[in-house]
Amino acid sequence: MVQSQQESETLEPVAGQSQSDENVLAARNLSVWYGNFRAVRDINLDVKRNSVLALIGPSGCGKSTLLRCFNRMNDLVLNSRVEGQIIYNGTDLYAPSTDSTEVRARVGMVFQKPNPFPKTIFENVAFGLRVNGFKGNLQEAVERSLRQSALWEEVKDRLNSSALELSGGQQQRLCIARALAVEPEVILMDEPCSALDPVATLAIEDLIRQLVAKYTIIIVTHNMQQAARVSHETAFLMVGEDRAGYLVEMDATDKIFTNPSHEQTEAYITGRFS
């Protein structure tokens, strides 16, 4: 594992924090503010290791905001502020001693629109390894990531051509390979298929089902069927009257889609809510 070669500098367990081994991530009383506007409030949830968690809910319910707390991408937004905790393997990701760049090497991310760098296919995958000072065999690591993202056979003869020449679906799989390259523990996906056609979407969903053997995945999606197809657990968020998103319920995906505990969840899933 690449991960084992790097010494953790700041991700030390918080004293007094106990967390069962089966959860890799947890949110504790999490609220996110953008200036005076609270985007999400009081979120509490646990993410099981080697599972897929789907975040669903109407637009503006803070799914993406919540997702971006797990790798501290919200830090990049001007005037954003996080209250509460994100516990990653017993460490508070928002503790003052935690380095956000180290967090992002452990918790990777795939974005809504495929955003490969205007570099070669090889350099795209190698980027995370290079910036994190990887000392191993770069060629091998790149090939392994491309195989994991089911892209290797399609690009092995043109690793040095521009990533922008790939199709949209291939670009998104390249972005997944790029995120996998540093072997993070968790991968965040922010509506990864919303810019893709149905065939490319199914390819990404297949990939998610394969990757879960090795990674923990949190996916934001607007597509109910997609959540039902790929996830083990589903969290349903709603917008409150104060326009802040909150967690209505989180449960096994089967249960959420067949027998949810809350009326709102059922209304949303059956399309009686917009």
């Binding site: 990049l76 090497a105 990777g108 955003n115 980027f127 910036v131 790029r178």
Partner: peptide
Amino acid sequence: VPDAYRQAGYALGADQWQVVRRIVLPS
């Protein structure tokens, strides 16, 4: 330079100078 490039760089654990030198300046 599209912001999506910077976001992708940060999400891979690059710090600000690495994003500037390896992504923003070449583009």
